[in-house]
Simulated scan of single mutants.
Amino acid sequence: MPYIDFTDLKGSVGIESVLGMLDIRLRKTGDQLRGRCPIHNGGNDREFVVTPAKGLYYCFGGCGGGDSIKLVAMVQGCELKDAAAFIAERSGFASGPDSSGQKRNGTTLPVTVDGSPQPQPERRTLKPLDYLQYTDAVAALGISEETCKHFGAGYAPKGIMRGRLAIPIHDRDGTLIAYCGRTVKGESPTLIFP
């Protein structure tokens, strides 16, 4: 199996295209898509949500969430590398040592027919959750208010992290790329990575 750069793949093939590959039909609700969960074949037509702008999905019925590659893996019951290969094959995506490309910062860039680098999409940045709070439930976890402020963490009273301690995750450059949610009341799963 040729090498597939997951980041390049997700940047090139949107989650809406992946929904089409899996024949998943959802209805548009604002800037999200909603419907029954294709992973556990749920009965609630609002339990599964896809946010195309973020390239993420989440199932409120207990399946959790993730990106388009994880969605394929969960729906088809396969490993992430096989899910990535499924997306790449159906979209015509090529990446890695077996494809022609130029390197920038150690990653292979897709090229046009004449060999010049294809324009790359702007890197999306995540906005900090400005509504996070320091609560007694967070304090009960042994985390001080100062620590929460320092890391930008806190209790999320709304949104996809609702009812959890939202912990920001940054890349090596310090760019906010995700939030991890940790339960404050012992729910399962303990951690979520939507």
Rank of each mutant, 00 (worst) to 15 (best):
R36G: 05
Q102P: 02
Y134D: 11
T7F: 13
K28E: 12
K81Q: 05
V49E: 14
S116M: 14
G14S: 14
D5T: 08
A85S: 10
K185C: 10
L126V: 14
V184M: 02
D23N: 15
R27A: 15
I192C: 04
K28D: 04
S91K: 01
Y57M: 09
G11V: 00
L71D: 00
Y57L: 02
K185N: 14
V49F: 05
V138D: 03
Y3R: 15
D45M: 10
D98N: 01
K103P: 02
C59N: 05
G152W: 01
Q32A: 15
S188W: 09
I167T: 14
R104M: 10
V138H: 06
I4A: 08
P121T: 08
D5C: 09
P168N: 02
M21T: 03
R162T: 10
F93P: 01
T190E: 13
R162E: 15
I15M: 06
Q102H: 08
C59K: 09
G106C: 06
Y57Q: 02
D130M: 09
I192M: 06
G55E: 03
A140L: 13
G11Y: 00
I192Q: 15
P110G: 01
F93C: 07
G101T: 03
I15E: 03
S99V: 08
P110R: 05
I39E: 03
K127Y: 12
L26G: 09
D67H: 02
G20L: 03
Y134S: 07
N41G: 13
A85Q: 11
I169E: 11
C148D: 10
V111T: 12
L141V: 03
I15S: 06
P110W: 03
C37Y: 14
P157G: 12
V13D: 04
G77H: 06
I69N: 01
G159S: 05
S91V: 10
H40P: 00
G61L: 07
Q118D: 11
L33F: 13
D31I: 11
Y57W: 15
M74S: 13
P128A: 04
G186V: 06
Q120K: 09
E145D: 15
L132Y: 06
C148N: 04
G96K: 05
I143M: 06
P189M: 04
Y58I: 13
K158V: 10
P121Q: 10
G186T: 06
R182G: 05
S144A: 08
S17I: 08
L141G: 04
M1I: 11
P38E: 06
G96Q: 05
T107D: 03
A94G: 08
T107R: 13
P2C: 02
C148E: 04
Y155V: 08
Q76N: 11
Q76V: 05
D67S: 03
D5W: 07
K28P: 07
L176Y: 09
D114H: 09
I87R: 03
T175D: 13
A88C: 00
G35P: 03
I143C: 12
Q32R: 15
G14D: 08
T190I: 07
A139R: 15
T175N: 11
I4C: 08
S116W: 08
P194S: 10
P52T: 09
K185Y: 11
R164T: 08
Y58Q: 10
V138F: 06
P110I: 01
D45N: 12
K158H: 08
N44V: 15
G96W: 00
K158Y: 06
Y131D: 14
R123A: 12
K10C: 05
C37F: 07
G55S: 00
I39H: 04
